[in-house]
Amino acid sequence: MEKDFEDREAIKKLKSLAEDIRFCMYTTYSDGKIESRPMTTLEIDTDGNVWFFTSRNTEIGDETNRREPVTLIYSDPKSNTYISVSGNAAIVESEARKEELWNPMSKAWFPEGKDDPNLVVLKVTTDEAAYWDSTSSKMVVFFSMIKAVLTGTTPEGGDHGKLNLVG
């Protein structure tokens, strides 16, 4: 069933779906080439912005100061949840934000800790998203597909829609 959301309801829906997945493919387009790399979502704030850590020594950390257009792809096949988020990325120079976002798991990627001079905060200001969410079990989805084949209809795919995150 198609369900679109606007503004605060869209942000609430994004947070409810993406925060449980935590990992996304951070996708950029540069020099005629699409590039994706896995990133760990640290937070989705009350405005729908998505926050990450990265290193100045990476392409993302080195080249993102120009509000680069990005797409974040979240996928959880076990729960049949998929999200595509569009927005613009920028490095945020803020020691306070670094402190707020730091968690013990971040040390795996940044062994020098939150004081690592190469650690930077990356903010994706979101514009819109699309989601597909079927909380049904795989067996329910499978039988829905069989029914569709036998009846010549389209299978019930759960909820899907657009999230307009810009008010």
Rank of each mutant, 00 (worst) to 15 (best):
S55E: 04
E63G: 02
R97I: 15
M25C: 12
S86H: 08
D159L: 15
N65M: 03
V85Y: 15
A89K: 01
T40D: 06
I146V: 04
K162P: 03
T58E: 11
W51A: 07
D45F: 14
E68Q: 03
F23H: 06
D115S: 14
I146M: 14
F142H: 07
A130I: 05
E35T: 05
Y29L: 02
F110R: 03
P117E: 12
I91N: 07
R97D: 10
S79V: 10
K162R: 13
D20L: 05
D45A: 06
F53R: 05
E6R: 14
K12H: 08
R56M: 10
T151C: 04
K12W: 06
T135K: 13
E112N: 15
D7Y: 11
V149A: 08
G167S: 14
I44F: 12
M145D: 07
L165I: 07
E68L: 04
K13C: 09
S55A: 07
F52A: 02
R22S: 02
T151Y: 08
G32S: 00
N88M: 04
D7N: 13
K78Q: 12
K123T: 01
S106G: 09
I60E: 12
G152P: 00
H160K: 15
S75I: 00
P117C: 10
P117N: 14
T40L: 05
T154N: 14
Y82W: 14
A148Q: 01
V141D: 10
T40G: 11
F5Y: 15
R8F: 13
D116V: 11
D20I: 00
V149P: 00
P104K: 04
L101G: 12
T135G: 07
F5H: 11
W109I: 01
E6Y: 14
G32C: 00
M139I: 04
W102E: 06
T58H: 09
F5I: 06
S30C: 05
M145G: 09
T125P: 03
N49W: 15
G161D: 10
V140I: 05
Y29T: 00
L17Y: 11
T64H: 03
T151L: 02
D20M: 02
Y29A: 01
G161N: 06
W51G: 06
G157H: 13
V85H: 15
F110N: 04
D62N: 15
V141Q: 10
D62Y: 09
K13I: 03
